[in-house]
Simulated assay, not measured.
Amino acid sequence: RIWKLKGSPSWNSYTEELKLSAISDYLSGKYSIREITRKYLISSHSVLLQWVNKYNSHREIKGTPKGRASSMTKGRKTTWNERVQMVLDCLGNGKDYQRTAETYEVSYQQVYQWVKKYEDGGDEALKDKRGRKKKLNSLRRMKSSFK
Rank of each mutant, 00 (worst) to 15 (best):
R1C: 01
R1N: 01
I2E: 01
K4N: 09
K6R: 08
K6M: 10
K6G: 04
K6H: 01
G7R: 15
S8F: 15
S8H: 04
P9K: 10
P9C: 06
P9W: 05
S10T: 12
S10C: 06
S10E: 15
W11G: 08
W11E: 09
W11M: 07
N12R: 14
N12Q: 12
E16V: 04
L18N: 12
K19P: 11
K19V: 11
S21Y: 03
S21G: 05
A22I: 04
A22H: 06
A22P: 05
S24H: 07
Y26W: 00
S28E: 12
Y31N: 03
S32P: 13
S32D: 11
I33P: 03
I36L: 11
I36Q: 01
T37S: 05
Y40K: 12
Y40G: 13
S43K: 15
L48T: 06
L48A: 01
L49R: 02
L49D: 00
L49C: 04
Q50I: 08
W51K: 00
V52I: 00
S57Q: 11
S57L: 02
S57H: 05
H58A: 15
E60H: 11
K62D: 14
P65Q: 08
P65Y: 06
K66T: 15
K66P: 13
G67A: 12
R68G: 14
A69G: 15
S70I: 03
S70L: 01
T73G: 14
T73Q: 08
T73P: 01
K74I: 12
K74H: 06
R76P: 06
R83E: 05
M86N: 03
M86V: 08
M86S: 05
V87C: 11
L91E: 13
G92I: 14
N93F: 07
N93G: 09
N93S: 07
G94E: 11
G94F: 03
D96A: 00
Y97E: 12
Y97A: 12
Y97M: 01
R99I: 03
T100Q: 00
T100W: 10
T103C: 15
T103W: 07
E105H: 06
E105D: 13
S107F: 02
S107D: 04
Y108C: 02
Q109D: 04
Q109G: 03
Q110W: 15
V111M: 03
V111N: 00
Y112E: 14
Y112L: 09
Q113I: 13
Q113R: 07
V115Y: 05
K117F: 06
K117A: 06
D120V: 09
G121V: 01
G122C: 05
D123Q: 11
D123L: 12
E124M: 06
A125P: 13
L126I: 03
D128T: 02
D128S: 09
R130V: 02
G131N: 11
R132W: 03
S138E: 15
L139T: 06
S144V: 07
S144W: 02
S144T: 04
F146E: 12
K147D: 14
